[in-house]
Design a protein around this nucleic acid. Sequence first.
RNA 1: GGCGGCUUGGCCAAGGGGUAAGGCGACGGCCUGCAAAGCCGUUAUUCUCCAGUUCAAAUCUGGAAGCCGCCUCCA
Length: 461
Amino acid sequence: MNLFNTITKTKVQFEPVEKEKISIYTCGPTVHERLNIGQFRRYAFTDLLIRFLEYQNMSVNHVVNITDYDDKTIQGSQKAGLSHSQFTDQYVDAFMEDMKTLDIRLAQTYPRVSKNFDEMVDISRDLLKRQNAYEKLHSLYFDVSSLPEYGQFSKTDLEKIKHGATVDLDDYEKLNPKDFTLLKRVRLSELKRGVGIKTEWGNVRPSLHLQCAAMAMKYLGNHFDIQTGSRELIFPHHENEIAISKAITGSSLANFWLHCDPVQYDGSLEEDSIFALHLDRLADQGWDAKTIRFWLISGHYRKTLVLSKKAMRDAQYTLDKINRCLETLSSIKQGDSFEDIDQFIYDINQGFTTAMQDDLKISGVISSLLAHIKTINRHINQNKINPENAAKILGAFEQIDTVLHVFEFGKKMKYSNEVHDLIKERESARCNKDFQRADKIRLKLLSMGIRIHDKKVNRND
RNA sequence: GGCGGCUUGGCCAAGGGGUAAGGCGACGGCCUGCAAAGCCGUUAUUCUCCAGUUCAAAUCUGGAAGCCGCCUCCA
């Protein structure tokens, strides 16, 4: 399998450190607010990766950190008048709930920053000893000049970056603006609220870079397989994480670094900004969780994904098309035998596997699926599929869905009695050629959200 | 100001030296009581623009424009 590795900036054959036992770290959320839909792309593409590795019989140990201790959570809890854990717990719960809704495979571990301070302090001490870090006014900073390869990962030329472009340099006391914070001394007001970890340098809180580096090393070791994140994390966050790791162990932490592109929102979903588009806001607008999931994974992870009403509608159309076909397959009672069914099943599997192995090329997956759907529909039209054939095909799609998790199988329609009666009534009206009445019932059913497809299985759309 | 990425039909999206997959939409046909669904067919002489290399460029090279990301406390 090939993956695009940010270290080499090319697609590289993926070789696990330990055969069939893959370790993956993903930069998790800061729990000071509800995540918006765009922020889930990172987890969605990682989900696709993990489930595909598992599809290929590898076991995956996945770690996602929870940043529950930083400026935003500290300030947020103060503002809300809650204890730190009261404040962060509600957003951790919301995050887990949303992950469940999006059917994203749970990680093995969700370590919290607030429970792993010791390792962060240890690393800082180590860096200080190795002279990769220095103390200034009760804060610890990483000395970037101590690491010659610093900047290579993100292709950053330190001579050319504009210092203070995104932060106010007056807030820092670093020797060199290029250096980054490891441990930051807490403010007096924060100290009074009990914020901060006691160390030999004073009461401090860890920087994001130190947090991720420490937890990745603690839970997955000094050298593991894959770290995933979003493109905007490459610099400075991942560059700094790698710097910490290189200074201590000489390794770049993960062998493979994967980054997804951002989500762009066009403003067509009842909110001006994507920040207001939480998962439940989309649900309120009638978008199904599987549709949202399909939209999230349906664009290649290294391409900008557009969020719009049309994009959601397109996702739903495509998904419906596939589901309709699957549903028809499952209702086949008799038919002629599908010629070369085993070859056809093989093609379905190959189409999927080949595309996924090429850096998770989901567009290839979808176009292959749709081509096969077309073939299946053609055979159904000609009555050239028998129940055994249908079961085999459904089995192949079920296999694929262990990775995608978007299809609907054997969705048993729980029609109310009223609906049942209406459908029956319409059938008899049609038999009696009372089409006016039949059409009226069809309209009524439609208003109830039920679409009638004659000569096919009645289904709820 | 620096670094990096992207730009393919009305829209979404493949292809990455050999003559433009697929989906949505639109149009025509089959099926249907009519629809819907499904099937069949049509829909880019051309890939943001300009120049170059080549027998051959959407694909390679150089330049321009537009959009996007990052520039050390957003993760």
